[in-house]
């Protein structure tokens, strides 16, 4: 064994106990997501989920929003007004009336298990993938916007203008509804969603069905809040600190 290999082995074994093959230091998880082979279909054994600790988001989620805009190419619609602009992820400021405590949290599609947007879609364009990611199949979306009305999180927006120069991994076009798709193109390639990579200290992405995944472990230990848990949608996005 070469000097370097033996060093690497010692170095990695010194960090053993932090689980996952891709840990490089305690607490730093570069890639928990395992890449599936590109020709293999997704499976319902996996359910992707996300945990956001809003106390650790020092900027209230601005970095996540910027990363999302850059990944998916939204946010520079030239002819849309404020109400028409695309909103894949928004910063929502909440104040508790009693104490006056304010907090800011990023809100996007919560990837519900029983998604109201999927229920109401007349064409089946609003869909949930086997792995729990909710997205719009823009090939068959007719732009009726029922899903926008059905979504309790106001997570969806409608493209009002002709677009050019979209991102190759994110087709977007006039007359269709769009929302956070948990970066399906990245997840299928074994990467984290762009927002998670932009704020790795505050966000965790992983498989909720796998009890050995980091996200399942911490959720089991500390729990995680759903927004509007009373609707019993079993969201895939959970929060800490609200």
């Amino acid at each position: 064994m070469s000097k370097i290999d033996s060093y690497r082995r010692n170095f990695l074994s010194g960090l053993a106990g932090t689980a996952a093959a891709v840990t490089i230091a305690p607490g730093v998880f570069l890639r928990e997501v395992q890449a599936k082979p590109a020709d293999e279909p997704i499976s319902d054994k996996v359910r992707w989920g996300m945990l956001i600790d809003i106390n650790k988001l020092s900027d209230g989620g601005d970095a996540c929003i910027e990363a999302c805009k850059k990944e998916h190419g939204w946010g520079d619609e030239k002819h849309s007004n404020d109400q028409q602009d695309a909103q894949w992820i928004r910063k929502v400021k909440v104040t508790e009336k009693m104490t006056g405590k304010t907090m800011s949290l990023p809100v996007m599609c919560q990837h519900c298990e029983t998604a109201p947007c999927v229920d109401v879609c007349p064409t089946g364009a609003s869909m949930k993938r086997a792995d729990g990611i909710v997205q719009v199949n823009k090939h068959i979306c007719i732009g009726c916007r029922y899903c926008m009305m059905a979504c309790p999180y106001k997570a969806r927006s409608f493209v009002h203008e002709t677009l050019v120069d979209q991102r190759p991994g994110t087709p977007r076009g006039k007359g269709t509804v769009e929302s956070c798709n948990m970066c399906v193109n990245r997840v299928d390639a074994g990467k984290n969603p762009a927002c998670v990579d932009a704020a790795p200290e505050a966000m965790l992405f992983g498989d909720l069905n796998d009890e050995n995944s980091q996200i399942s472990k911490v959720l089991k230990q500390y729990g995680g809040t759903q927004i509007r848990a009373d609707l019993e949608l079993n969201t895939g996005v959970r929060y800490w600190g609200i």
């Binding site: 120069d165 991994g169 087709p171 269709t176 932009a198």
Partner: peptide, 22 residues
């Protein structure tokens, strides 16, 4: 109408952000 019609290099910004953060 939706897909980009010419080759575009994939964005590197979000990844480079994470590298920077790291």
């Amino acid at each position: 109408e939706c897909h980009v019609d010419h080759p575009v290099k994939q964005p590197t910004t979000s990844i480079s952000n994470s590298i920077q953060n790291y």
